[in-house]
């Protein structure tokens, strides 16, 4: 598969648009279909596609292991951190309306960061699972 010209050319054409679409789905998620879970899986699928065509090591040089592993935890921490920010600003845990003077803008801000947290964790987990399965197949050196 590594030397299949058609696949490589098509992949090069498609992957930027897949990643761009993932970001569109993430940031346009308030107004159209989309959100953190969808964008995270699409982003993960895009990088996995890249890894399948060009080899896992190429994908790992784009997003190294330590980045992916910290993405796993960073997303959950960001999500939980939004809740704690709500606590510090005088609301209950995961109350968003205290995040701004205007309650509706506070809601939007909370939803944005929460969705960002979901995106980071989901994309990280998809990629980490793929790396793990792909690297397990190699003989130990």
């Amino acid at each position: 598969m590594k030397y299949d010209l058609v696949l490589r050319v098509v992949a090069k054409l498609l992957i930027p648009f897949i990643l761009l679409f993932a970001l569109y789905v993430q940031f346009h998620g308030d107004f159209g279909p989309g959100g953190g879970f969808q964008a995270g899986t699409i982003f993960g699928a895009g990088i996995i596609f890249y890894g399948l065509i060009f080899g896992v090591d190429t994908a790992r040089s784009v997003l190294p292991d330590w980045v992916v592993e910290s993405m796993l935890a960073a997303g959950v921490l960001l999500f939980a951190g939004v809740g704690i920010a709500g606590l510090l600003l005088g609301g209950n845990y995961l109350d968003y309306f205290v995040l701004d003077k205007n309650a509706v803008i506070g809601q939007h801000r909370g939803i944005f960061w929460v969705e960002a947290g979901v995106f980071i964790t989901v994309a990280g987990v998809m990629l980490k699972i793929f790396y793990m399965f792909a690297l397990r197949g190699r003989p130990e050196d």
Binding site: F31, G34, G83, Y96, H108, I111, E115
Partner: peptide, 18 residues
């Protein structure tokens, strides 16, 4: 109530945040 047209996003992130 939260002025987000996509209700699924609103419910996912705000109403059912926990």
């Amino acid at each position: 109530e939260v002025d987000v047209p996509n209700v699924v996003t609103a419910v996912l992130a705000s109403f059912r945040g926990f």
